[in-house]
Structure formats: C-alpha cells, structure tokens
Design a protein around this nucleic acid. Sequence first.
DNA 1: TAGTGGTCTAGACCACTGT
DNA 2: CAGTGGTCTAGACCACTAG
Lengths: 246, 246
Amino acid sequence: MKPSLDPDTSIPYYEQIRAYLLAKIESGEFRPHTRTPSERVLSEQFGVSRMTVKHAIKELVSSGRLYTRVGKGTFVSDPPITQNLNMLTGFSEDMEALGKSTSSRVLTAAVIAATAKIARELRIPQEAHVVLLRRIRLADNEPVALENSYLNHTLCPGILDTHDFSMESLYAVLKNEYQLILSYGEQSIQARLATKSEADLLSIQKGFPLLDIMRTTFSDEAQPIEYVESIYRGDLYVFRARLTSV
Amino acid sequence: MKPSLDPDTSIPYYEQIRAYLLAKIESGEFRPHTRTPSERVLSEQFGVSRMTVKHAIKELVSSGRLYTRVGKGTFVSDPPITQNLNMLTGFSEDMEALGKSTSSRVLTAAVIAATAKIARELRIPQEAHVVLLRRIRLADNEPVALENSYLNHTLCPGILDTHDFSMESLYAVLKNEYQLILSYGEQSIQARLATKSEADLLSIQKGFPLLDIMRTTFSDEAQPIEYVESIYRGDLYVFRARLTSV
DNA sequence: TAGTGGTCTAGACCACTGT
DNA sequence: CAGTGGTCTAGACCACTAG
C-alpha cells in the first residue's frame, strides 16, 4: 500500500496527492488533530517536489480539512458539518440522515422571458429566455420545500426536452450534459410567515414559519448559471453552511 | 505610481502584491470582467518570480475577487455581496446601509460553567468556565436581535473585567487583546416563531417569524473560540453569505 | 540541534486562446 | 503564431518548535 502517482492521466499530481490525503482523512486512518507526514516526507514518498505537495495540502487547508502550524506540522481538522451549496444533494442528504426518502413534484417546467429581477440576477438582457423549473420537494411524501429555479437558457438549450426533473437531479444534468460546474453561490436568507397559497402547496397552515432563501450560483468563471428562490418549512429544515472570513 | 515592494517589512511579497491588486479592484481602476496585467508582466514589474505573483492571484481567486481563464488571462469578478461571518460588523454594516444607527444592550455578562451542549460545541470539558455574553442588538433604538455568545474563558481570561460590550466590539477585543483571529465558522439556520419571552425582549408579538442562527467560530488552527445562538427579527434582518463548493 | 511549514527563485513544458 | 494561465522542478533561506 505504498502511495504512488499515475503519470499517464490528465489529473495533475497535486490533485492525486490531495485525493490520497483526503481518503486517509475520510477513512479515519488520519485521525482529527493528529499530524500528517511532513511535506518533505510526502514529496519523497511521491517523488515530486515539495511545492507540489504543498499545493495539495493548501487545497485541503482552504477547504477546512487540514490546518498547519509552523515548526510543528500539518494536522487533521475535525470533520466539517454538511456544506450544502448543492441544495438538491444537501436536501436529499439531510433527509436521508433522518431516515426519510426524498422526491420531487414538478409544478412548472417552461421556457419564459426573464423578468427584470431574474435578468439582473443572471446578468442577461431583460426578456431573454430563461428556464423556469418550479418544484415541490418531498420527504417521505410530505412537502418540505418549494423551489423556483431560473436558468440561463443559452447555457442549457433544450434541457427540458430531454429530462424529467421529478426524477433527475438538475445539478447532475447541468454538470454531465452541459459541462456547467457550479462553483460558488451568493445567498440571502430571511424568515417569514407562509402566505395562504404557499401554505396550501406545503400542506401547512397560513402563518407557519418559513425560511426564504434566494441564491445565485456561479460557474468557476464567475458566470451566473442559476437563480433560485426557495421556501422551506421552518420546522423541518435546518440550513447549514460553512463560512470563511477571507 | 509605479508598483513597488517593500523588502524591509515582515509582510511577504505575495501579500503586498495581493493588496496592490485588491486596491486596484476596489478603487474601480480594474473594472469587472476586464483583464488584469498578465502574470509575466506583473512578475517583471514587481521584480519577483512568476510563482510569487501566482500566489497573490490565487488568494484573490479563492476569495472570489478574480477569476482566471487559461489562454486568455486573469479577470476581475463582479463585486461580492456582504460576507458577514463577523456578524457584529455585518449587522452594523447592514443597518448602516439602511441609514440606521446601531447599539447593543447587555443583558448578562458573566463567567459560568459550561453546559453539556456548550462544552461540546467549544470542545472543552463539561463544567469548564465559559464567558456568557447576552446582548440585545438595536437599530435606531429598535431591538432587532438577541445574541447569546459563549466564549472559552481559558482563551480570553478577564475579558469581562476590562470591557463594556454595550460599546465595544467583541470581535475587535478578541483580535486586538487576545490575538484570537476568527477564521471560519460553521452555522445552522432555522426559521421559527417567537416565544412570549423572546417577543417581549424584541418588542414584537408572540408568533412573529424569527431567524434562529447557531454558529461555532474557529481560529485558523481549528480551535473553537466562540459559540453563538442568535435570534433575528425576520422582517428586519436578511442574512447573506457566500458559499463555496470546494 | 534537527525538523517543521512559509516564502521565494529562475527556470521549464503543457494546453489553450485569439489573430 | 505569440501570449496566456496551469503545472512542476530542485533547490534556497527564514522563523518557529521541540527535545
């Protein structure tokens, strides 16, 4: 079980080393707050320069899995709480952890003209085409959230013709079919009470507490891909996030 | 106005270059989606190696201020929304943007024994000493939030003897007096309705929508420094955050 | 004193973009 | 084609930590 790198792949060495270290962390072989092998040791083991090892470590530090102390070494962080930028997966995972099954009910799937607000969020001209996907999220067949997703139609032409989003993951289709990788998001969260029509859709009473979440999600090239407005039942859903100060 | 580096400071070159670029971005001299000077040009201008320039750029990329495209160059991102990890500052800033003045009313400031939950969050033994700071946040003398902060007393001994947190910023004192830099946080957010006693403190009606925020904040060495439970009036406060997928 | 991570150099080759 | 960022090397010196 000696570590080794594959030179015949397009995956850079630092990514392979990062994956190697992450696997050790997630398997528990590297336990929280214990030291990892030093940079010099790793660079010798893998047969790469220390800068390359440092690159791998830096990635893991910035994602909160490792931390470094000058003169002492590199250490494993405590495991992070769920980071659900990917709200779809996050939602499924959260509900799974509670032993619930998840599904979606599509209310609307259409190409429409962007309103002024949507156009501003997606940074496209007003009246440009956007995909509207309006879905109810269910856990054990109980409605938990109402999601309105708006996508820049230019980036994912024909997406509604070939997919049924009551079954498929929107993010998976964007990634696999359109090579749209969601990299980061900007989000606002507010608490408010359910209106009558929202209450009906979520099978709750008017006046129920809701989390009102608005998010714009960007590619790694800072292009807005998706704008989502969601409401979540306050009693069933906890939103979790990791925040950084940098 | 030629760029230059100061070799007589402990500030590394890449930090100086980062500050130089950030100033250009924030002043508007580098406009969104325009190209910055190339890495090779910058390295020649500053008289450093390209790796050092790359280091500076990488910092700005990971904080969302720049993005890179292979073969094309490095570009300025759109300005980010407020990142209020520092909730205190974030709160003040948000309210300032609305033209409101902010202040705090201290309800409790005491050293107490940690409950099981607090001890778990701060990763200290149960019954260990923690500082409890219970404050009401006001905007234009109107109560907006109720914050309960718990601090590991070992890390900030005597903090209550010398400070009045109705005036001073807790985070500023932690930073300046105890060298405790808050680096990242893990946060849960839920919506719920105000209880009678919460409603009284915030001068609202029972049943009002509230944002219920729980956050543990860590140093750059992954040490928990603070655990905060806050409730915010849903009608007055919007929580904003930047999320990353990495 | 030996070992650690932090910073930095002066190159190199690659794939990719636009002309 | 010339220019770009991405990756990588094989060193170097520094401040810091621990025994």
